[in-house]
């Protein structure tokens, strides 16, 4: 028990949360086509921006300063951004619907399952889907000749870490939401991050002040993490990226843990 108390994540919820994942697997057995949308999103971005725009842009500065093709530069960033987007849509819109309108959670709560089990299970499911998309994306990069280093495989846990961080914070934010209007605020935060976190162009192009500001946001760390791993150019700053995202996820989770009982057990 003492070991459990150290990390809020594991003290929160139980093995029963796996039944949540089992439920979602059952659901997707009926409509597995829905699973595919998350796979095509980053792929379409890669084809249009990476290859389309890349022709016009030429080479850019990658991590460590060497010149790389724009497609190589943008591919891992698109993976990071889609990990963020997937986690956010699952943990905000979908989670809000399930919390407030769907009766599935209510029925599950009449069994030994707890709100924590439900939350942990939903998070686990979101990450499993994220893993599936990431593997698909890496395979496409491989086919398109965008793989430069065996470290590319570490982008899988990297993308999952991004998913975890954003899903946990997304759920925490959603637990405070009162109406659908509040979701506009989330888009207001997510969209600029998507566009400016060094996703589509190197930060050297930015004034110092703006660059510093961007370096404080989570997607920047996600993009840098995946870019370094996919190109195999890893420096000590990777610890900062990993630490930032892990701390963000754990913090988000602690907040949800404290609020879910209140929300679901009235």
């Amino acid at each position: 028990m003492t070991a459990l108390r150290i990390t809020p994540l594991f003290a929160f919820g139980s093995r029963r949360s796996l039944h949540m994942i089992e439920r979602n697997l059952l659901v997707y057995r009926h409509g597995w086509l829905m699973l595919l949308s998350g796979f095509f999103e980053p792929l379409f971005y890669l084809l249009s921006i990476g290859f389309g725009l890349g022709k016009l842009v030429g080479d850019v500065n990658g991590p460590g300063g060497q010149l790389i093709s724009y497609t190589l530069f943008v591919a891992p960033a698109l993976l990071a951004a889609s990990s963020m987007n997937g986690a956010i849509s699952e943990s905000t819109f979908n989670f809000f619907f399930k919390l407030n309108y769907d009766k599935t959670f209510a029925s599950i709560l009449t069994t030994p399952m707890s709100p924590a089990d439900i939350a942990l299970g939903e998070l686990g499911w979101a990450l499993m889907r994220g893993a599936l998309y990431t593997v698909g994306f890496i395979a496409v990069m491989f086919v398109l000749g965008l793989v430069r280093s065996p470290l590319i495989f570490l982008t899988l846990p990297g993308a999952l870490l991004i998913g975890f961080a954003f899903a946990a914070v997304g759920m925490a934010a959603t637990s405070f939401m009162r109406s659908w209007q509040d979701f506009d605020l989330i888009q207001l935060v997510i969209l600029p991050m998507f566009l400016f976190s060094g996703t589509f162009f190197p930060l050297d192009a930015m004034p110092d002040a703006v660059r510093l500001l961007i370096q404080l946001t989570p997607l920047y760390h996600g993009v840098e993490l995946l870019r370094e791993l996919s190109l195999g150019v890893v420096g000590p700053d990777i610890l900062v990226h990993v630490g930032y995202l892990a701390a963000m996820g754990l913090l988000g989770f602690t907040v949800v843990a404290g609020r879910l009982d209140k929300l679901l057990l009235k």
């Binding site: 029963r16 039944h19 089992e22 439920r23 059952l26 659901v27 009926h30 009766k103 599935t104 209510a106 029925s107 599950i108 009449t110 069994t111 030994p112 399952m113």
Partner: peptide, 20 residues
């Protein structure tokens, strides 16, 4: 509070799984 995304039989099976 039936699970509308599942079949009649699946509703029973998954509910039993929640009990372990």
């Amino acid at each position: 509070t039936l699970d509308n995304e599942l079949t009649v039989r699946e509703n029973l099976i998954i509910y039993g799984r929640y009990f372990g």
